[in-house]
Each structure stands twice: as structure tokens, then as C-alpha cells.
Nucleic acid binder design. Sequence first.
DNA 1: TAGGAGTCGTTCCGGTCCGAACGACAACGG
DNA 2: CCGTTGTCGTTCGGACCGGAACGACTCCTA
Lengths: 177, 177
Amino acid sequence: MSRYDRTTADATGDGHHTLVETERALAERLSGLPVDMDAMAAVQNVYRAANRVRNHLERTVLAPHDLTWTGWVVLWVVWIWGDIETRHVATEAGISKGTLTGVIGTLEKRGLLKRRTHPDDARRVLVALTAKGRKLMTTLFPQFNAEESHVTASLTANETTALARSLRKVVAQIETD
Amino acid sequence: MSRYDRTTADATGDGHHTLVETERALAERLSGLPVDMDAMAAVQNVYRAANRVRNHLERTVLAPHDLTWTGWVVLWVVWIWGDIETRHVATEAGISKGTLTGVIGTLEKRGLLKRRTHPDDARRVLVALTAKGRKLMTTLFPQFNAEESHVTASLTANETTALARSLRKVVAQIETD
DNA sequence: TAGGAGTCGTTCCGGTCCGAACGACAACGG
DNA sequence: CCGTTGTCGTTCGGACCGGAACGACTCCTA
């Protein structure tokens, strides 16, 4: 046993700690200093939830079709907005343009979308789904959305909308810097 | 100009689209099919907010100290729980043990933490901060927490706690599969 | 007490990610 | 006209990421 068996940790068995445990351990490190526990908990859970949701959707919906999360998001953006410039795709998908180049290359190689030069500006590149890509999205989106419903199933309708609204506030707050 | 200038997009100028615009464009793709818009908006914003928060904190707090987000999380976990086995660090930090090996290697090379073999089990490895690592955390955590407060500043206290609670529900929902 | 089963951290691989640097191109100026 | 400036997408380097395979080690059992 010995003290190394996490006698100070109060583990819940699977290595996860509750907020209360973390708060107590943190108090030992920062005795006296003021800590915004609510903000800390919110930020931690945003990041934790995002990764959990991503991994879950990748495994249940995307993996059978050999799609990564980023690949899916890019396909979705192009599907919705169609015939869109790559720089806008990058902004909309929330990735850098450097990353997008590789992702679009992969998707184009698989015949899901196509690149073409902008007719009025040879620097720009337009992207659009192929027929194969549109067919895939028509099949996949209902499955994806059903899983989105599933992961939010433990929330009431009001809680779900409040969640989205609060998160938009956080994003807006960051963008006003 | 031409139709390629996003006449169908209703861009807000910076490449971002509102939920209403997305909903309308989506309706054109899925006319008739039922869509859980609330779940979709919630999932999208969770992921968007997580990345925005991460990037913001990396730039404002972590970058000056040449720390990555993952490196910071690992340091934080070890700081809070101290003398902890690597497998628990991986679980707590939300990364795989394969990834953790590399991150710990980097942090150890910088003298921020130290590895040592578990006295009762030669397979296990214990990790603890060095004096330098503890000093860094004492300096950095208040700055980090202040930025966490800042990004949630546009939420009321009730909204912040509700946000964290809803996100925990989402995580719990996924883990019950 | 010796062998098999299980668990630990590590290594490797293919892929993702960002930011900086780069070349191609367009727009503006003299 | 032609250089300067700025904006595209692309390329490259370094870090991260999960999952599979691996060797080292412990535990269980006959």
C-alpha cells in the first residue's frame, strides 16, 4: 500500500476527481490566495466536454466512414455553404489555413470535394462537394445529429439552449480583446 | 463581385455566421428531414468555445513561458496531486499514456518535474514537481486563473455554475454508454 | 516455486495542428 | 507601364494525439 497509493487523492476509482477534492487539494497549494473556482471549473469542463464529445462522435459516427473530426467539419462547412473560398472554410471550421490545405488534399483525394481556381482571382481557391460528397453528407448528417441529440439528452431543452448561449458569450468575450 | 463573393452566405464580415444563417442554409440541404438544432448548436459551441479558450490562454499566459496547453495541464495535475503515478496523470489530464510519455519527457528535460521509480512496484513511475516547477506554478497559476475569470466575465455567477454543471452532465451522459 | 496472465511505461506510426516562411498573384502608386 | 505592398494558398518544422505493439515487471495459481 504505502502512501503512494493516492492516500492524498481521494480517487473515485477510475482516476477521476471531483471538484470538491480538487478544491481541497488546491487550497493546500494556494492557502490564502484568492481563486475563482467557478471560472476554473467552467473552463475545465468546457475543454473536457469538448474532447469527450469529439472522441465519442468520432467513434460512433465518423470512424465507420474513415472520417476524422476535422475532415467532417470541413465537409460540413462546404456542404452548407457550397462553392466557398478556402480561407472562409478555415475560419468557419476553426482551423488554420495551413491545416486546411492538408485536410482538403485528403478529402479531394477521396473524391469527396473538388478544388478549382477562382475565376476572378487566381490566388483564391474555391471548394465544392462532389456528387459523392453530397451523397455521403446526406447519409451521415442524420446519424451525426442523432448522436448530438444523444449526448445532450440528459439536459432539458432550456438547459441545452442556455448552454449554447453561455458558450457563445464566452467566445464573444474572448473576441473582444 | 460575381456570385462567388458569398452572396449566399450572409457573412458578418469576418467569416463568421450566425446560428440563424446556418439554420437557413441547412434547411436548404435537409428540407423535410427533422434536425435537432438545439443539440447541434450546443455541440458546435462546446467545441468552438473550447478551442477559443485554449488558444486564448496559450497566447496570453502560457506562450511567454514557452508552455503548451498540454504541458500546462500535466504540470497542474502533478502540482495539485503531487507524487502521482503517470497513468493517473494521463487520466486526469485527459490524454493517452503514450502522449504523456513525450510530454513528461519534455517537462523533465526543462527541469520542471522529475520521474522516479515506484518503491513498491518497479513497473510504475512516480512524478513530482521540482522546486523550479513549484515556483513556476506559484507564479503562473494566479495569472492563468485570472484569465479564466476574464473569459467567463460576461456570465453571471449563476450562469457560470450552470455552465459547468451542464457540461458535467454531457460528460456523464457519454460515459454511460 | 515456476509458469502464465495481466499491468505498467515506453516506443513507434500515421495523422492532426499551429505558426512562420514562402512563392504566386492582385491592387495601388508613381 | 513597373515596382511596392498586401493577400492568397501552400510548404515546412515542431509539438501533440491515439492506438497498437513491445519489454519489463508483478500477481496468481498449480
